[in-house]
Nucleic acid binder design. Structure first.
Lengths: 114, 114
DNA sequence: AGCATGTGCAACCAATAAGTTGCTGGTCAC
DNA sequence: GTGACCAGCAACTTATTGGTTGCACATGCT
């Protein structure tokens, strides 16, 4: 039973622009949409849309202060995604180890058996 | 400088059906598209498309044997994705720790200072 | 008050994605 | 050889997505 948020998190991470936003947010305490848009080849509105989506995945928090809204990263939902990856990876590793065990058992049987 | 494959991997993981396929593949040594389609509410062709995309991200290998093609998982590209997540998470943790350090320093200054 | 700045909302466009149906071709068993 | 099974194309539909432009609203500064 997978946490519900994983879906939104993976969907958020699918877009390179969004990952770039997360990287930039991880370097500053908080920023505005216009400041981020200034560093990217897209309009402020496009950035705002991405930030809204990230906010939907709870990866960023938005706080309105004065006439600007400051966005800050919240990396915690990333844990769910990392856990999913680790789980699939671990299961694969396990299967692979077992396969190797069987193969080397056969190899031993072949060499010692004749 | 991010590995080029990360993009394809994250794009592949964005779709829940694709994640379900990866989970199922992690449990079996190898399977066919029809077998997977039988367990899902979509057609074989849809599954085949997803598998083609996963193959593009090098997350699955396809091997034709007899009249069927067997797909097997290769979890290694997941490492790149996991690394990206860990990096952003770590940077965020670091910033957060520093913030807490500053806050507690101010708190100490407040309590011991009066 | 008046102007610049920072946002938010809505409509629109082009491209992509997920899924379907329909058909053709190879491989196995009888 | 004939029929069943597995797979691969191709065309098409529909929904979503990333992006834009245009406009209206709020806030800060002088």
């Amino acid at each position: 039973m997978v946490p519900a948020g994983v879906d939104a998190v993976f969907a958020a991470l699918a877009d390179p622009t969004r990952r770039s936003l997360l990287e930039r947010l991880s370097a500053r305490p908080s920023t505005t949409a216009t400041a981020l848009a200034a560093e990217l080849p897209i309009t402020r509105q496009a950035v705002a849309k991405h930030l809204a989506l990230l906010r939907g995945a709870r990866l960023v928090n938005a706080e309105r202060v004065g006439r600007e809204t400051r966005y800050r990263l919240d990396a915690r939902p990333l844990d769910d995604a990392a856990r999913w990856i680790a789980q699939v990876g671990a299961e694969w590793d396990g299967r692979l180890a077992e396969l190797n065990r069987l193969l080397s058992a056969r190899a031993r049987g072949r060499t010692s058996g004749r």
